[in-house]
Amino acid sequence: MKLKQLEGLLGSLQQFENPKIELEQYPTGPHIASRLLYTAENSFGDVSDKVVADFGCGCGTLGLAAGLLGAEHVIGFDIDAESIEIASSNADELELDMDFIQCDIRNLRLSDRAINTVVMNPPFGTRKKGADMDFLSMALKVASGAVYSLHKTTTRDHIKRTALREYNASSAEVLCELRFDVPQLYKFHKKKEVDVAVDLWRFVPNTNRPKHL
């Protein structure tokens, strides 16, 4: 599938009707989502025939993009039932099978390394400090192949250091810098639309780490 075609399909997906600010629900735009998955597949082979998890899947954009690119099994995790309902109807719309689990990522228990690739657009942690790091830490625990994630560019050094030193990533690389359009979703947004600089990261988990860590 071509990038433009993928972006087009993702652009047709239904997004949050009543976004919840406490969960930092911002839709992952089709531009960013298509590039994230397209790179994961075409530069690294991390999608087709793989088991892919979408952490904090929201309306399912990233997970469904993985499904469109040939992932064999996709699981979306989200704390919010309403989001999962939208994601599930988006999956029906695209005629894709995707499993969903309603849970809090912070206390998820999955068997080690059963998932090849985690893709996520985590809460940036502006409302609830450290939320993005909770997601990253868990993703690096369960993935066997790679973790793709979006984080604010302003946190780049912190992300790199923490991933390598504390979450036992064997590599942490910024693939590109993107603009994340934050439309005026919430009342406290004063400007009509704001661009936030975000990094698209690829982390490789260290799968040789001792069990007790």
């Binding site: 088991v51 099994h73 699981i75 499993d99 689990i101 849970c103 206390n107 998820l108 228990r109 068997s111």
Partner: peptide
């Protein structure tokens, strides 16, 4: 939910 998902999932209750 497929059984592949079931096969990865554990009870997450503390303790």
């Amino acid at each position: 939910m497929r059984l592949l998902t079931h096969n990865m999932l554990s009870s997450n209750i503390k303790g």
